[in-house]
Design a protein around this nucleic acid. Structure first.
Ligand SMILES: [Mn+2]
Ligand SMILES: [Mn+2]
Ligand SMILES: [Zn+2]
Ligand SMILES: [Zn+2]
Lengths: 142, 142
DNA sequence: TCAACAGTTTAGAATAAATATAATATATTA
DNA sequence: TAATATATTATATTTATTCTAAACTGTTGA
């Protein structure tokens, strides 16, 4: 696996030693063809399914938090019952399908720059995120 | 209190009988000069402070949920550890001050209409919300 | 007016996400 | 490889939220 080097580097840059549990987590998170959104529970399930290695919840939480701090993962605030994470750390926005409970990326280029005319003294904007909630369009066709 | 009528109507429209606990909750939520953002814990504390009536957590949760369902309150997704609610149910956006953990309204007029060029087949957009995270601007003055 | 009923309140239990703990195990390094 | 620092894990704890079921209250129509 030629990717292992990259994972080890990501881990070290996150202040984490490369252990086999953490490298497994990296394989799931960063080896994917595409970026994806996940909850901790889903991540644990993926690891369990594709590995013969057991990783404790605590290790998963700690590793995910370290990657977030470093910017290798993003948290998407959606609802208060559970955290959603994103392996796509580029600046982008989201559709949230309220019926299927699923996040869909909207590329930055697909949203005109959000222009906020108001400012707060002494504060600067660090990030701007758009969440568009979508539902089935049951409009009868004209 | 001339407002009581309005509260009773709001409650009835939400499918709730007007009880003294629920009217108290209405007083806190809808009698304010201004709209505000709150967590359930904060709401319970406000009620405790300004009333000689005890309201259980379950009643607060149930009433808040009924008001949300009816559209008298909105939930603001911010982080997964706790729900934030908003008594401002008009279409608007938010700054989130990451240092003070505080939400600040951005009036709809202060944000140019968000133009999303991408669509999802069979789905329509129900709402679009912008959250701009802000931090102290420690830029040295030129 | 008031009994009967439907709906409400409440304390406490249950659930579930997230975090903390501390003993054991592993990675690093000299 | 020995010594040290760090990681892993099972388990406990914390906390937000929801559920439960018994006691209570608002409503309604006789
Ligand atoms: Mn929620
Ligand atoms: Mn929780
Ligand atoms: Zn995304
Ligand atoms: Zn608001």
């Amino acid at each position: 696996m030629a990717y292992a080097e990259q994972y080890i580097e990501k881990l070290r840059k996150s202040g984490l030693r490369p252990t086999k549990q953490r490298i497994k987590i990296c394989e799931v998170l960063f080896d994917a063809e595409k970026t994806f959104h996940f909850t901790i529970k889903e991540l644990v399930k993926i690891i369990e399914n594709q590995a013969n290695i057991k990783v404790s919840l605590a290790t998963v939480y700690n590793t995910v938090h370290a990657f977030m701090k470093k910017g290798y993962l993003k948290e998407i605030p959606l609802n208060a019952s559970q955290s959603y994470y994103d392996t796509n750390v580029t600046h982008h926005h989201h559709f949230f399908d309220e019926e299927e409970n699923k996040l869909i990326d909207i590329h930055q280029d697909d949203v005109d720059e959000v222009n906020i005319k108001r400012t707060i003294p002494g504060k600067k904007i660090r990030s701007v995120e758009v969440i568009a909630k979508i539902v089935s369009d049951n409009q009868s066709q004209k």
